[in-house]
């Protein structure tokens, strides 16, 4: 098991190397120039040349890459071309928010999705089942930016409420922090819940048809024990896969939701950096997101073996 984890962690190296080359090249291929976006219509050829030199953009591309990589390997992701801020501390700082947002959204989605999914499976083809399926369909198909905008406007228009302005960290002021985080988490949580609900329902239905469930029932086990101790646990693997993917995606930054709710998370950082061609920030952030995504996948794989002891890694 430990050897497996070490092996998987070592595999991070080629993955991150590939990602770093890919994003580095892509950022230099797309049209757009950071010096021009900074200086705008006031740019003169001299000031543009000077800025490009300051950013090292006059060097050959392989040299730019090696210089950047040399920094990354020593933990120095460079400075933002636009604001001069150090990239890595900025990414880590914003990741805290994105992590919190992901965590709360995930909890909201599990609280909604898993019980409802189970009910739908047990009461298959009943009104409750149709209700749950309708809700999950809505969750999957209503775009979260639409839900977010409607939520903001309805609360402001009919309840004269809008969340506090300006993000405050959880440890600085938990009450304000939760007020700020709850709306975006509800929006993301309901969207996540849709998919999880469907998967829970179909996965449990499948497990309930299996022989061992019949055996357990034949042994006289109560239905609650059948569902929660046996069926749910066996049904968890595909649900976990979906949850893992959702969390990985959310941790990479939820651009639209962060923008709508003015949250200074990872998504906003990447979006702003891309539109302004702030190469160092985009490269650093993408590398970081890739790292997190791979880690989450590893964690999900390890959880499989926890839930189903038949799965072992060597």
């Amino acid at each position: 098991m430990y050897a497996y984890i070490v092996r998987r962690l070592l595999m991070l190296v080629p993955v991150l190397f590939g990602v770093s080359v890919f994003i580095f090249v892509i950022m230099r291929i797309v049209p757009g120039d950071v010096a021009m976006t900074i200086l705008g219509t006031d740019a003169t050829p001299e000031s543009l040349r000077q800025l490009r030199e300051d950013f090292g953009l006059n060097l050959p591309i392989y040299q730019q890459y090696f210089e950047w990589m040399a920094g990354v390997l020593t933990g120095d992701f460079g400075e933002s071309m636009r604001t001069g801020k150090e990239v890595l501390p900025d990414i880590l700082n914003r990741f805290k928010l994105t992590f919190e947002l992901t965590l709360i959204s995930a909890v909201i989605s599990w609280v909604i999705a898993i019980p409802l999914g189970i009910i739908a499976a047990i009461k298959r083809n009943s009104k409750a089942d149709f209700g749950v399926r309708l809700i999950s369909l809505l969750g999957v198909s209503v775009p979260n930016f639409a839900l977010a905008t409607v939520l903001i406007l309805v609360l402001a228009l009919f309840f004269s409420y809008s969340p506090p302005v300006g993000y405050v960290g959880f440890f600085a002021d938990p009450a304000t922090n939760l007020q700020i985080m709850i709306l975006p988490s509800i929006v993301l949580g309901t969207a996540m819940a849709g998919a999880v609900m469907r998967m829970t329902r179909s996965s449990i239905l499948e497990v309930l048809r299996q022989d061992f469930i019949r055996t357990i029932r034949a042994k006289g086990a109560r239905e609650r024990v059948v569902i929660f101790q046996h069926a749910l646990r066996n049904a968890m693997i595909p649900i976990l896969t979906i949850i893992g993917m959702q969390i990985g995606t959310l941790l990479g930054g939820t651009v639209i939701i962060e923008q709508i709710f003015s949250l200074p998370g990872l998504g906003q950082l990447v979006l702003t950096a891309i539109t302004q061609r702030d190469f160092t920030v985009v490269q650093g952030a993408v590398l970081f997101i890739a790292f997190v995504f791979v880690l989450i996948n590893l964690l999900v794989d390890l959880l499989y073996s926890y839930l189903d002891p038949r799965i072992t890694y060597k």
């Binding site: 905008t149 903001i152 406007l153 609360l155 402001a156 228009l157 004269s160 409420y161 809008s162 969340p163 506090p164 302005v165 300006g166 923008q259 709508i260 709710f261 003015s262 200074p264 906003q268």
Partner: peptide
Amino acid sequence: VVYNTMKEESSRLSAIRTGEV
């Protein structure tokens, strides 16, 4: 004076309605 970064117009709209800004 506090300049709050709020990129989304609908957020600015609701914040001015409710007096948050």
